[in-house]
Design a protein around this nucleic acid. Structure first.
Length: 577
DNA sequence: CGTGGCTGCCC
DNA sequence: ATTCTGC
DNA sequence: GCAGAATGGGCAGCCACG
Protein backbone atom coordinates (compact mmCIF):
# COMPACT_ATOMS: atom_id res chain seq x y z
CA UNK A 1 0.00 0.00 0.00
CA UNK A 2 1.06 3.54 -0.69
CA UNK A 3 1.84 5.68 2.33
CA UNK A 4 -0.57 8.28 0.98
CA UNK A 5 -3.40 5.81 1.37
CA UNK A 6 -2.33 5.13 4.95
CA UNK A 7 -2.34 8.88 5.52
CA UNK A 8 -5.95 8.94 4.25
CA UNK A 9 -6.86 6.36 6.88
CA UNK A 10 -5.07 8.38 9.53
CA UNK A 11 -7.03 11.42 8.51
CA UNK A 12 -10.31 9.55 8.88
CA UNK A 13 -9.23 8.18 12.24
CA UNK A 14 -8.36 11.65 13.41
CA UNK A 15 -11.76 12.95 12.38
CA UNK A 16 -13.68 10.76 14.78
CA UNK A 17 -13.66 10.37 18.54
CA UNK A 18 -15.87 7.30 18.42
CA UNK A 19 -13.94 4.21 19.42
CA UNK A 20 -16.11 1.84 17.39
CA UNK A 21 -15.59 3.88 14.25
CA UNK A 22 -11.87 3.85 14.81
CA UNK A 23 -11.86 0.09 15.24
CA UNK A 24 -13.84 -0.37 12.02
CA UNK A 25 -11.55 1.97 10.10
CA UNK A 26 -8.41 0.30 11.40
CA UNK A 27 -9.84 -3.13 10.62
CA UNK A 28 -10.53 -2.10 7.05
CA UNK A 29 -6.98 -0.78 6.84
CA UNK A 30 -5.45 -4.01 8.17
CA UNK A 31 -7.49 -6.09 5.75
CA UNK A 32 -5.97 -4.15 2.89
CA UNK A 33 -2.39 -4.67 4.05
CA UNK A 34 0.07 -7.52 3.64
CA UNK A 35 1.15 -9.17 6.91
CA UNK A 36 4.46 -7.35 6.70
CA UNK A 37 2.67 -4.05 6.23
CA UNK A 38 0.39 -4.82 9.18
CA UNK A 39 3.51 -5.35 11.26
CA UNK A 40 5.11 -2.05 10.25
CA UNK A 41 1.88 -0.06 10.47
CA UNK A 42 1.32 -1.40 13.98
CA UNK A 43 4.72 -0.03 15.00
CA UNK A 44 4.05 3.27 13.23
CA UNK A 45 0.78 3.56 15.15
CA UNK A 46 2.85 3.22 18.31
CA UNK A 47 5.08 6.01 16.98
CA UNK A 48 7.88 3.48 16.75
CA UNK A 49 9.72 1.28 14.28
CA UNK A 50 10.31 -1.73 16.50
CA UNK A 51 8.68 -3.15 19.63
CA UNK A 52 8.92 -1.12 22.83
CA UNK A 53 11.67 -3.23 24.26
CA UNK A 54 14.00 -2.72 21.29
CA UNK A 55 16.30 0.25 21.65
CA UNK A 56 15.72 1.94 18.30
CA UNK A 57 14.45 5.49 18.82
CA UNK A 58 14.07 8.35 16.37
CA UNK A 59 16.25 10.58 18.51
CA UNK A 60 14.40 13.54 17.06
CA UNK A 61 11.80 15.58 18.79
CA UNK A 62 10.30 19.02 18.34
CA UNK A 63 13.54 20.96 17.89
CA UNK A 64 14.95 18.62 15.28
CA UNK A 65 11.70 18.06 13.42
CA UNK A 66 11.33 21.84 13.31
CA UNK A 67 14.86 22.03 11.95
CA UNK A 68 14.00 19.45 9.28
CA UNK A 69 10.88 21.36 8.32
CA UNK A 70 12.91 24.54 8.07
CA UNK A 71 15.21 22.77 5.62
CA UNK A 72 12.36 21.26 3.65
CA UNK A 73 10.50 24.55 3.42
CA UNK A 74 13.59 26.76 2.97
CA UNK A 75 12.57 28.81 5.97
CA UNK A 76 14.54 30.05 8.98
CA UNK A 77 14.43 27.78 12.00
CA UNK A 78 13.14 30.69 14.07
CA UNK A 79 10.32 31.29 11.64
CA UNK A 80 9.28 27.65 11.81
CA UNK A 81 9.49 27.78 15.59
CA UNK A 82 7.32 30.87 15.74
CA UNK A 83 4.74 29.22 13.51
CA UNK A 84 4.89 26.12 15.66
CA UNK A 85 4.14 28.14 18.77
CA UNK A 86 1.07 29.56 17.02
CA UNK A 87 -0.17 26.30 15.54
CA UNK A 88 0.84 23.96 18.36
CA UNK A 89 1.44 21.02 16.05
CA UNK A 90 4.44 20.57 13.75
CA UNK A 91 2.39 18.06 11.77
CA UNK A 92 -0.28 20.63 11.01
CA UNK A 93 2.47 23.09 10.15
CA UNK A 94 3.97 20.60 7.70
CA UNK A 95 0.62 20.01 6.11
CA UNK A 96 -0.06 23.72 5.76
CA UNK A 97 3.23 24.55 4.04
CA UNK A 98 4.05 21.43 2.05
CA UNK A 99 2.17 21.23 -1.22
CA UNK A 100 0.22 18.46 -2.84
CA UNK A 101 3.09 16.11 -3.68
CA UNK A 102 2.91 12.93 -5.67
CA UNK A 103 2.31 10.52 -2.82
CA UNK A 104 4.13 7.71 -4.55
CA UNK A 105 6.09 6.16 -1.74
CA UNK A 106 5.07 2.77 -0.45
CA UNK A 107 4.51 2.33 3.28
CA UNK A 108 7.52 0.04 3.37
CA UNK A 109 9.68 2.65 1.58
CA UNK A 110 8.73 5.24 4.14
CA UNK A 111 9.35 2.77 6.95
CA UNK A 112 12.82 2.03 5.61
CA UNK A 113 13.66 5.71 5.35
CA UNK A 114 12.50 6.29 8.91
CA UNK A 115 14.64 3.37 10.01
CA UNK A 116 17.63 4.94 8.31
CA UNK A 117 16.97 8.20 10.13
CA UNK A 118 16.55 6.46 13.47
CA UNK A 119 19.76 4.47 13.13
CA UNK A 120 21.92 7.42 12.13
CA UNK A 121 24.32 8.15 14.99
CA UNK A 122 27.72 9.66 15.72
CA UNK A 123 29.48 12.82 14.65
CA UNK A 124 27.47 14.78 12.14
CA UNK A 125 24.36 12.72 12.82
CA UNK A 126 22.13 15.65 13.74
CA UNK A 127 22.79 17.20 10.34
CA UNK A 128 22.30 13.86 8.59
CA UNK A 129 19.08 12.99 10.40
CA UNK A 130 17.51 16.37 9.74
CA UNK A 131 18.67 16.28 6.11
CA UNK A 132 17.20 12.83 5.62
CA UNK A 133 13.89 13.78 7.18
CA UNK A 134 13.79 16.93 5.05
CA UNK A 135 14.53 14.78 2.02
CA UNK A 136 11.69 12.45 2.97
CA UNK A 137 9.36 15.45 3.27
CA UNK A 138 10.29 16.43 -0.28
CA UNK A 139 8.76 13.18 -1.52
CA UNK A 140 5.57 13.59 0.46
CA UNK A 141 2.32 15.46 0.22
CA UNK A 142 1.42 17.81 3.05
CA UNK A 143 -0.97 15.27 4.46
CA UNK A 144 1.66 12.54 4.49
CA UNK A 145 4.23 14.90 6.01
CA UNK A 146 1.79 15.72 8.78
CA UNK A 147 1.62 12.14 9.95
CA UNK A 148 5.32 11.45 9.43
CA UNK A 149 6.10 14.49 11.58
CA UNK A 150 3.78 13.30 14.28
CA UNK A 151 5.13 9.75 14.21
CA UNK A 152 8.68 11.00 14.63
CA UNK A 153 7.57 13.31 17.42
CA UNK A 154 5.71 10.51 19.17
CA UNK A 155 2.51 12.55 19.07
CA UNK A 156 0.35 10.89 16.46
CA UNK A 157 -2.77 12.00 18.35
CA UNK A 158 -5.25 9.85 16.47
CA UNK A 159 -6.97 8.51 19.57
CA UNK A 160 -5.68 5.03 18.88
CA UNK A 161 -3.58 3.24 21.46
CA UNK A 162 -2.64 -0.39 21.84
CA UNK A 163 -6.09 -1.51 23.07
CA UNK A 164 -7.79 0.02 20.02
CA UNK A 165 -5.37 -1.74 17.71
CA UNK A 166 -5.97 -5.04 19.49
CA UNK A 167 -9.71 -4.57 18.98
CA UNK A 168 -9.08 -3.76 15.35
CA UNK A 169 -7.02 -6.91 14.83
CA UNK A 170 -9.97 -8.89 16.12
CA UNK A 171 -12.44 -6.93 14.03
CA UNK A 172 -10.38 -7.40 10.88
CA UNK A 173 -9.99 -11.11 11.48
CA UNK A 174 -13.48 -12.04 12.58
CA UNK A 175 -15.77 -9.06 12.06
CA UNK A 176 -16.22 -8.43 15.77
CA UNK A 177 -14.22 -7.86 18.95
CA UNK A 178 -14.63 -11.38 20.25
CA UNK A 179 -11.03 -12.37 19.64
CA UNK A 180 -9.63 -9.50 21.68
CA UNK A 181 -8.88 -11.68 24.72
CA UNK A 182 -6.82 -14.15 22.70
CA UNK A 183 -5.03 -11.43 20.79
CA UNK A 184 -4.45 -9.35 23.88
CA UNK A 185 -3.05 -12.30 25.76
CA UNK A 186 -0.55 -12.91 22.98
CA UNK A 187 0.44 -9.24 23.09
CA UNK A 188 0.83 -9.24 26.85
CA UNK A 189 3.15 -12.20 26.65
CA UNK A 190 5.36 -11.02 23.80
CA UNK A 191 4.99 -7.21 24.17
CA UNK A 192 5.36 -6.91 20.41
CA UNK A 193 2.31 -5.45 18.66
CA UNK A 194 3.85 -5.84 15.21
CA UNK A 195 4.58 -9.50 15.79
CA UNK A 196 1.02 -10.09 16.99
CA UNK A 197 -0.40 -8.47 13.85
CA UNK A 198 2.02 -10.25 11.54
CA UNK A 199 1.35 -13.61 13.15
CA UNK A 200 -2.42 -13.21 13.10
CA UNK A 201 -2.57 -12.26 9.43
CA UNK A 202 0.06 -14.68 8.19
CA UNK A 203 -0.41 -17.75 10.38
CA UNK A 204 -3.83 -17.31 11.91
CA UNK A 205 -5.38 -17.17 15.32
CA UNK A 206 -4.13 -20.55 16.49
CA UNK A 207 -0.57 -19.34 16.12
CA UNK A 208 -1.40 -16.60 18.64
CA UNK A 209 -2.96 -19.15 20.97
CA UNK A 210 0.39 -20.91 20.98
CA UNK A 211 2.18 -17.88 22.42
CA UNK A 212 3.66 -18.70 25.80
CA UNK A 213 5.47 -16.95 28.59
CA UNK A 214 9.12 -16.98 27.62
CA UNK A 215 11.78 -16.43 30.20
CA UNK A 216 13.97 -13.67 28.76
CA UNK A 217 11.10 -11.91 26.96
CA UNK A 218 9.45 -9.09 28.91
CA UNK A 219 5.79 -9.40 29.92
CA UNK A 220 3.70 -6.22 29.87
CA UNK A 221 3.42 -4.97 33.39
CA UNK A 222 0.27 -4.75 35.45
CA UNK A 223 -0.39 -1.27 36.87
CA UNK A 224 -2.38 0.03 39.80
CA UNK A 225 -5.45 2.27 39.89
CA UNK A 226 -5.86 4.92 42.58
CA UNK A 227 -8.34 5.59 45.33
CA UNK A 228 -8.26 8.32 47.97
CA UNK A 229 -9.07 6.35 51.12
CA UNK A 230 -8.95 3.03 52.92
CA UNK A 231 -12.74 2.97 53.10
CA UNK A 232 -13.11 3.28 49.36
CA UNK A 233 -10.57 0.53 48.78
CA UNK A 234 -12.38 -1.89 51.06
CA UNK A 235 -15.79 -1.10 49.64
CA UNK A 236 -14.35 -1.59 46.16
CA UNK A 237 -12.54 -4.89 46.57
CA UNK A 238 -13.27 -6.10 50.08
CA UNK A 239 -10.72 -8.38 51.65
CA UNK A 240 -7.33 -7.55 50.22
CA UNK A 241 -3.62 -7.89 50.63
CA UNK A 242 -1.90 -4.64 51.58
CA UNK A 243 1.77 -3.92 51.05
CA UNK A 244 3.98 -0.87 51.29
CA UNK A 245 4.67 1.17 48.15
CA UNK A 246 8.32 1.98 47.65
CA UNK A 247 9.65 4.90 45.64
CA UNK A 248 12.14 3.31 43.30
CA UNK A 249 11.81 1.75 39.89
CA UNK A 250 9.86 -1.24 38.80
CA UNK A 251 11.89 -4.27 37.79
CA UNK A 252 10.81 -7.46 36.11
CA UNK A 253 13.55 -10.00 36.67
CA UNK A 254 13.91 -13.06 34.47
CA UNK A 255 16.10 -15.88 35.71
CA UNK A 256 17.08 -18.70 33.39
CA UNK A 257 19.81 -20.58 35.19
CA UNK A 258 22.64 -18.10 35.58
CA UNK A 259 21.25 -15.97 32.80
CA UNK A 260 19.47 -12.97 34.30
CA UNK A 261 17.58 -10.19 32.54
CA UNK A 262 16.03 -7.13 34.11
CA UNK A 263 13.29 -5.10 32.42
CA UNK A 264 11.96 -1.67 33.31
CA UNK A 265 8.30 -0.67 33.57
CA UNK A 266 8.41 0.20 29.87
CA UNK A 267 10.08 -3.12 29.14
CA UNK A 268 13.51 -1.66 28.44
CA UNK A 269 16.29 -4.14 29.03
CA UNK A 270 18.20 -2.60 31.95
CA UNK A 271 20.21 -5.68 32.86
CA UNK A 272 23.60 -4.03 32.30
CA UNK A 273 22.80 -1.22 34.70
CA UNK A 274 22.25 -3.41 37.72
CA UNK A 275 25.04 -5.95 38.31
CA UNK A 276 24.10 -6.05 42.01
CA UNK A 277 20.53 -7.05 41.24
CA UNK A 278 21.74 -9.62 38.73
CA UNK A 279 23.99 -11.16 41.37
CA UNK A 280 21.20 -11.04 43.93
CA UNK A 281 18.81 -12.75 41.52
CA UNK A 282 21.32 -15.53 40.82
CA UNK A 283 21.81 -16.17 44.50
CA UNK A 284 18.37 -15.56 45.92
CA UNK A 285 15.83 -16.82 43.42
CA UNK A 286 15.44 -20.41 44.46
CA UNK A 287 14.43 -21.82 41.10
CA UNK A 288 16.12 -22.69 37.86
CA UNK A 289 13.75 -20.52 35.87
CA UNK A 290 11.56 -17.76 37.22
CA UNK A 291 10.10 -14.33 36.52
CA UNK A 292 9.58 -12.05 39.49
CA UNK A 293 8.65 -8.40 39.87
CA UNK A 294 9.65 -5.87 42.45
CA UNK A 295 10.67 -2.32 43.23
CA UNK A 296 14.38 -1.47 43.32
CA UNK A 297 15.74 1.28 45.58
CA UNK A 298 19.21 2.48 46.49
CA UNK A 299 20.18 1.79 50.08
CA UNK A 300 22.26 4.06 52.29
CA UNK A 301 24.41 1.60 54.25
CA UNK A 302 25.81 4.28 56.48
CA UNK A 303 22.50 5.71 57.61
CA UNK A 304 20.69 2.38 57.24
CA UNK A 305 17.89 3.94 55.26
CA UNK A 306 16.71 4.14 51.68
CA UNK A 307 17.68 6.99 49.43
CA UNK A 308 15.01 9.18 47.86
CA UNK A 309 14.02 8.54 44.27
CA UNK A 310 16.23 11.35 42.99
CA UNK A 311 19.25 9.43 44.26
CA UNK A 312 18.05 5.98 43.29
CA UNK A 313 17.48 7.13 39.73
CA UNK A 314 21.20 7.80 39.34
CA UNK A 315 21.62 4.05 39.12
CA UNK A 316 19.89 4.17 35.76
CA UNK A 317 23.05 4.70 33.72
CA UNK A 318 25.29 3.25 31.04
CA UNK A 319 28.70 4.35 32.31
CA UNK A 320 30.49 4.35 35.66
CA UNK A 321 28.17 1.61 36.82
CA UNK A 322 30.62 0.03 39.28
CA UNK A 323 31.60 3.33 40.88
CA UNK A 324 28.04 4.47 41.48
CA UNK A 325 26.97 1.00 42.55
CA UNK A 326 29.49 1.12 45.39
CA UNK A 327 27.77 4.18 46.89
CA UNK A 328 24.24 3.31 45.87
CA UNK A 329 23.71 -0.43 46.20
CA UNK A 330 20.23 -1.55 45.21
CA UNK A 331 17.77 -3.58 47.20
CA UNK A 332 14.76 -5.16 45.58
CA UNK A 333 11.40 -5.56 47.27
CA UNK A 334 9.87 -8.45 45.35
CA UNK A 335 6.07 -8.40 45.21
CA UNK A 336 4.95 -10.76 42.48
CA UNK A 337 5.74 -13.99 40.74
CA UNK A 338 4.81 -14.54 37.09
CA UNK A 339 6.51 -17.77 36.22
CA UNK A 340 8.48 -20.51 37.84
CA UNK A 341 10.06 -23.67 36.44
CA UNK A 342 7.79 -24.36 33.51
CA UNK A 343 4.63 -23.01 35.09
CA UNK A 344 2.87 -19.81 34.07
CA UNK A 345 1.80 -18.22 37.34
CA UNK A 346 -0.01 -15.23 35.82
CA UNK A 347 -3.47 -16.89 35.86
CA UNK A 348 -3.15 -17.92 39.53
CA UNK A 349 -4.75 -15.90 42.32
CA UNK A 350 -2.56 -13.23 43.84
CA UNK A 351 -2.45 -14.89 47.23
CA UNK A 352 -1.06 -18.03 45.71
CA UNK A 353 1.56 -16.18 43.68
CA UNK A 354 2.66 -14.33 46.77
CA UNK A 355 2.94 -17.45 48.92
CA UNK A 356 5.03 -19.12 46.26
CA UNK A 357 7.14 -15.98 45.90
CA UNK A 358 7.90 -15.95 49.62
CA UNK A 359 9.07 -19.54 49.56
CA UNK A 360 11.08 -18.91 46.40
CA UNK A 361 13.19 -16.00 47.65
CA UNK A 362 16.16 -17.30 49.59
CA UNK A 363 17.62 -15.29 52.46
CA UNK A 364 20.15 -12.71 51.36
CA UNK A 365 20.83 -9.01 51.41
CA UNK A 366 19.60 -7.87 48.00
CA UNK A 367 16.13 -9.27 47.41
CA UNK A 368 13.43 -9.31 50.04
CA UNK A 369 9.69 -9.61 50.28
CA UNK A 370 8.11 -6.74 52.17
CA UNK A 371 5.70 -7.41 55.00
CA UNK A 372 2.07 -7.36 54.04
CA UNK A 373 -1.24 -7.85 55.74
CA UNK A 374 -4.56 -9.25 54.64
CA UNK A 375 -7.56 -7.31 55.83
CA UNK A 376 -11.13 -6.31 55.15
CA UNK A 377 -11.13 -3.67 57.83
CA UNK A 378 -10.60 -0.09 56.69
CA UNK A 379 -9.21 0.80 60.11
CA UNK A 380 -6.59 -1.89 59.89
CA UNK A 381 -5.74 -0.87 56.35
CA UNK A 382 -5.44 2.71 57.48
CA UNK A 383 -3.14 1.75 60.33
CA UNK A 384 -0.87 -0.04 57.88
CA UNK A 385 -0.97 3.00 55.63
CA UNK A 386 -0.16 5.42 58.46
CA UNK A 387 2.66 3.16 59.49
CA UNK A 388 4.03 3.09 55.96
CA UNK A 389 3.99 6.85 55.48
CA UNK A 390 5.32 7.23 59.01
CA UNK A 391 8.37 5.35 57.80
CA UNK A 392 8.68 7.79 54.92
CA UNK A 393 7.22 5.54 52.25
CA UNK A 394 5.03 6.67 49.38
CA UNK A 395 1.97 4.84 50.60
CA UNK A 396 0.48 1.40 50.09
CA UNK A 397 -0.84 -0.85 47.38
CA UNK A 398 -3.91 -2.96 48.11
CA UNK A 399 -4.39 -6.05 45.98
CA UNK A 400 -7.38 -8.24 45.29
CA UNK A 401 -6.43 -11.57 46.82
CA UNK A 402 -8.07 -13.68 44.14
CA UNK A 403 -7.05 -11.73 41.04
CA UNK A 404 -4.74 -13.10 38.36
CA UNK A 405 -1.73 -11.11 37.19
CA UNK A 406 -3.38 -9.04 34.48
CA UNK A 407 -0.48 -8.18 32.24
CA UNK A 408 -0.67 -4.79 30.57
CA UNK A 409 -3.74 -3.72 32.54
CA UNK A 410 -4.35 -0.83 34.88
CA UNK A 411 -7.38 -1.80 36.90
CA UNK A 412 -8.70 -2.17 40.42
CA UNK A 413 -7.00 -5.50 41.02
CA UNK A 414 -4.25 -3.31 42.42
CA UNK A 415 -5.08 -0.02 44.09
CA UNK A 416 -2.58 2.49 45.31
CA UNK A 417 -3.17 4.87 48.15
CA UNK A 418 -0.59 7.60 48.40
CA UNK A 419 0.20 10.13 51.05
CA UNK A 420 -0.70 12.92 48.70
CA UNK A 421 -4.20 11.64 47.90
CA UNK A 422 -5.27 12.35 51.44
CA UNK A 423 -5.92 16.06 51.50
CA UNK A 424 -5.40 16.46 55.24
CA UNK A 425 -2.06 14.79 55.31
CA UNK A 426 -0.04 16.61 52.71
CA UNK A 427 0.33 20.32 52.68
CA UNK A 428 -0.79 22.14 49.64
CA UNK A 429 1.04 25.31 48.74
CA UNK A 430 -0.21 28.67 47.55
CA UNK A 431 1.76 29.70 44.49
CA UNK A 432 1.89 32.91 42.50
CA UNK A 433 1.41 32.59 38.76
CA UNK A 434 4.38 34.18 37.03
CA UNK A 435 3.66 33.27 33.43
CA UNK A 436 2.26 30.64 31.15
CA UNK A 437 3.21 28.43 28.25
CA UNK A 438 1.12 28.02 25.11
CA UNK A 439 -0.02 24.44 24.81
CA UNK A 440 0.50 21.76 22.22
CA UNK A 441 -2.07 19.54 20.54
CA UNK A 442 -5.45 19.70 22.20
CA UNK A 443 -4.31 22.55 24.46
CA UNK A 444 -3.55 24.80 21.51
CA UNK A 445 -7.18 25.72 21.09
CA UNK A 446 -7.18 26.90 24.70
CA UNK A 447 -4.17 29.11 24.07
CA UNK A 448 -2.57 27.92 27.28
CA UNK A 449 -0.90 24.68 28.25
CA UNK A 450 0.73 25.17 31.60
CA UNK A 451 1.60 27.71 34.28
CA UNK A 452 4.92 28.86 35.64
CA UNK A 453 4.45 29.37 39.36
CA UNK A 454 6.54 30.53 42.25
CA UNK A 455 6.82 31.26 45.94
CA UNK A 456 7.43 34.56 47.71
CA UNK A 457 10.78 35.51 49.17
CA UNK A 458 10.14 38.27 51.74
CA UNK A 459 13.87 38.85 52.30
CA UNK A 460 14.37 40.16 48.79
CA UNK A 461 10.71 40.90 48.02
CA UNK A 462 10.94 38.65 44.97
CA UNK A 463 9.08 35.69 43.52
CA UNK A 464 11.04 32.53 42.79
CA UNK A 465 9.93 29.65 40.63
CA UNK A 466 9.11 26.30 42.18
CA UNK A 467 6.98 24.48 39.57
CA UNK A 468 5.35 24.43 36.20
CA UNK A 469 1.82 23.13 36.44
CA UNK A 470 -0.06 21.55 33.58
CA UNK A 471 -2.82 19.56 35.22
CA UNK A 472 -5.69 20.01 37.59
CA UNK A 473 -7.75 22.53 35.64
CA UNK A 474 -10.66 21.69 33.38
CA UNK A 475 -10.68 23.08 29.85
CA UNK A 476 -13.20 25.66 30.96
CA UNK A 477 -10.92 26.71 33.79
CA UNK A 478 -7.89 26.91 31.52
CA UNK A 479 -9.80 29.29 29.27
CA UNK A 480 -10.86 31.40 32.23
CA UNK A 481 -7.32 31.37 33.52
CA UNK A 482 -5.92 32.56 30.21
CA UNK A 483 -8.49 35.33 30.21
CA UNK A 484 -7.36 36.50 33.63
CA UNK A 485 -3.69 36.24 32.79
CA UNK A 486 -3.92 38.05 29.48
CA UNK A 487 -5.19 41.11 31.35
CA UNK A 488 -1.97 41.28 33.36
CA UNK A 489 0.33 40.15 30.60
CA UNK A 490 3.72 41.93 30.40
CA UNK A 491 6.31 41.92 27.65
CA UNK A 492 9.31 41.07 29.78
CA UNK A 493 10.10 39.32 33.00
CA UNK A 494 8.95 41.53 35.89
CA UNK A 495 11.87 42.77 37.96
CA UNK A 496 10.58 41.08 41.12
CA UNK A 497 10.65 37.67 39.44
CA UNK A 498 13.74 35.47 39.67
CA UNK A 499 13.61 32.71 37.10
CA UNK A 500 15.83 30.57 34.91
CA UNK A 501 12.86 29.29 32.95
CA UNK A 502 11.29 31.51 30.30
CA UNK A 503 7.54 31.08 29.86
CA UNK A 504 5.98 32.03 26.54
CA UNK A 505 4.04 34.77 28.30
CA UNK A 506 5.11 36.65 31.44
CA UNK A 507 2.47 38.08 33.72
CA UNK A 508 2.49 40.48 36.64
CA UNK A 509 2.69 38.43 39.86
CA UNK A 510 -0.89 38.72 41.04
CA UNK A 511 -2.93 35.54 41.11
CA UNK A 512 -2.43 32.83 43.69
CA UNK A 513 -3.44 29.22 43.06
CA UNK A 514 -3.54 26.36 45.50
CA UNK A 515 -1.25 23.59 44.32
CA UNK A 516 -0.90 20.03 45.51
CA UNK A 517 2.30 18.04 45.16
CA UNK A 518 3.69 14.75 46.39
CA UNK A 519 7.07 15.91 47.50
CA UNK A 520 9.66 18.64 47.40
CA UNK A 521 12.90 17.90 45.57
CA UNK A 522 16.17 19.71 44.97
CA UNK A 523 16.07 21.38 41.59
CA UNK A 524 18.64 22.52 39.05
CA UNK A 525 16.13 24.73 37.24
CA UNK A 526 13.82 26.25 39.82
CA UNK A 527 15.05 29.27 41.75
CA UNK A 528 13.18 28.85 45.04
CA UNK A 529 15.79 28.49 47.78
CA UNK A 530 18.58 28.50 45.23
CA UNK A 531 21.90 30.01 46.22
CA UNK A 532 24.67 30.88 43.78
CA UNK A 533 25.91 27.65 42.19
CA UNK A 534 23.58 25.53 44.33
CA UNK A 535 20.33 23.70 43.71
CA UNK A 536 16.92 25.22 44.29
CA UNK A 537 13.71 23.45 45.28
CA UNK A 538 10.83 22.15 43.20
CA UNK A 539 7.51 20.32 43.57
CA UNK A 540 7.22 16.73 42.42
CA UNK A 541 3.95 15.96 40.57
CA UNK A 542 2.44 19.43 40.91
CA UNK A 543 -1.24 19.95 40.06
CA UNK A 544 -3.65 22.79 40.61
CA UNK A 545 -6.04 22.05 43.43
CA UNK A 546 -7.96 25.29 43.58
CA UNK A 547 -8.48 27.63 40.66
CA UNK A 548 -7.62 31.05 42.08
CA UNK A 549 -7.44 32.11 45.70
CA UNK A 550 -8.98 35.53 45.58
CA UNK A 551 -8.35 35.89 49.30
CA UNK A 552 -4.61 35.86 48.76
CA UNK A 553 -2.28 38.59 47.61
CA UNK A 554 0.92 37.45 45.95
CA UNK A 555 2.85 38.38 49.08
CA UNK A 556 0.58 36.01 51.04
CA UNK A 557 1.77 33.06 49.00
CA UNK A 558 3.84 30.28 50.45
CA UNK A 559 7.35 31.53 51.17
CA UNK A 560 10.75 30.15 50.28
CA UNK A 561 11.30 29.56 53.98
CA UNK A 562 8.17 27.44 54.22
CA UNK A 563 9.26 25.34 51.24
CA UNK A 564 12.59 24.72 52.96
CA UNK A 565 10.82 23.69 56.13
CA UNK A 566 8.58 21.34 54.23
CA UNK A 567 11.61 19.84 52.52
CA UNK A 568 13.31 19.24 55.84
CA UNK A 569 10.17 17.71 57.30
CA UNK A 570 10.15 14.96 54.71
CA UNK A 571 11.00 11.78 56.47
CA UNK A 572 13.74 9.49 55.43
CA UNK A 573 12.93 5.83 54.94
CA UNK A 574 13.97 3.74 57.87
CA UNK A 575 15.23 0.25 57.43
CA UNK A 576 12.66 -2.46 57.97
CA UNK A 577 13.34 -5.96 59.04
C1' DC B 1 37.89 18.78 27.22
C1' DG B 2 34.06 21.14 29.27
C1' DT B 3 29.40 22.98 28.58
C1' DG B 4 24.83 23.40 26.92
C1' DG B 5 20.90 21.92 24.02
C1' DC B 6 18.13 18.26 23.18
C1' DT B 7 16.20 13.69 23.82
C1' DG B 8 14.52 9.49 26.11
C1' DC B 9 13.16 7.34 30.14
C1' DC B 10 12.49 7.00 35.07
C1' DC B 11 8.94 8.57 38.33
C1' DA C 1 3.86 10.51 37.53
C1' DT C 2 -1.54 13.37 37.76
C1' DT C 3 -5.52 14.94 35.66
C1' DC C 4 -9.23 15.70 32.43
C1' DT C 5 -12.50 14.08 28.65
C1' DG C 6 -15.33 11.36 25.27
C1' DC C 7 -17.47 7.18 24.83
C1' DG D 1 -14.48 2.47 33.89
C1' DC D 2 -11.62 2.46 29.87
C1' DA D 3 -8.65 4.60 26.75
C1' DG D 4 -6.29 8.39 25.28
C1' DA D 5 -3.96 12.77 25.45
C1' DA D 6 -2.66 16.73 27.84
C1' DT D 7 0.75 18.05 31.40
C1' DG D 8 4.86 17.80 35.60
C1' DG D 9 10.54 17.16 37.86
C1' DG D 10 14.82 15.43 36.86
C1' DC D 11 18.43 12.12 35.68
C1' DA D 12 22.01 10.33 32.08
C1' DG D 13 23.53 10.06 27.26
C1' DC D 14 24.55 11.99 22.82
C1' DC D 15 26.08 15.48 19.98
C1' DA D 16 27.50 20.28 18.64
C1' DC D 17 30.39 23.81 19.64
C1' DG D 18 33.83 26.75 21.66
Amino acid sequence: MKFSELADYFEKLEATTKRNEMVALLAELFKNLSPEEVEKVAYLCQERLVPNYEKIEFGMSEKLVAKSLAKALSKDEEEVWTLYKEIGDLGALAQRYIGEGKGELEILDVYNRLMEIATTTGKGSIEKKTDRLAELFSHLSGKEAKYISRIVLGRLRLGIGDPTILDAFSYAYSGDKSLRPVIERAYNLCSDLGLVGFTLFSKGLDALRDFKVQVGKPIRMALAERLPSAEEIISKIGRCSVEPKFDGFRCQIHKDGDNIKIFSRNLEDNTEMFPDLVEGARKQIGAEKAIIEGEALAFNEEAQEFFPFQVTVQRKRKYEIETVMADLPLKLFAFDLLYVDGEDYTPKPYIERREKLKSLILPGDVIMVADSIITEDPKELNLFFENAIGSGLEGIVAKRVDAPYQAGARNFNWIKLKRSYKGELTDTVDLVILGYYVGRGARTKLGIGSLLAGVYDPESDTFKTVAKIGSGLTEEEWIKMKGLLDEIRVDNKPSRVVSILEPDIWVEPKYVVEVRADEITRSPVHTAGKDEGELGYALRFPRVEKFVRIDRKPEDATTVQEILEMYNMQKKVEVKE
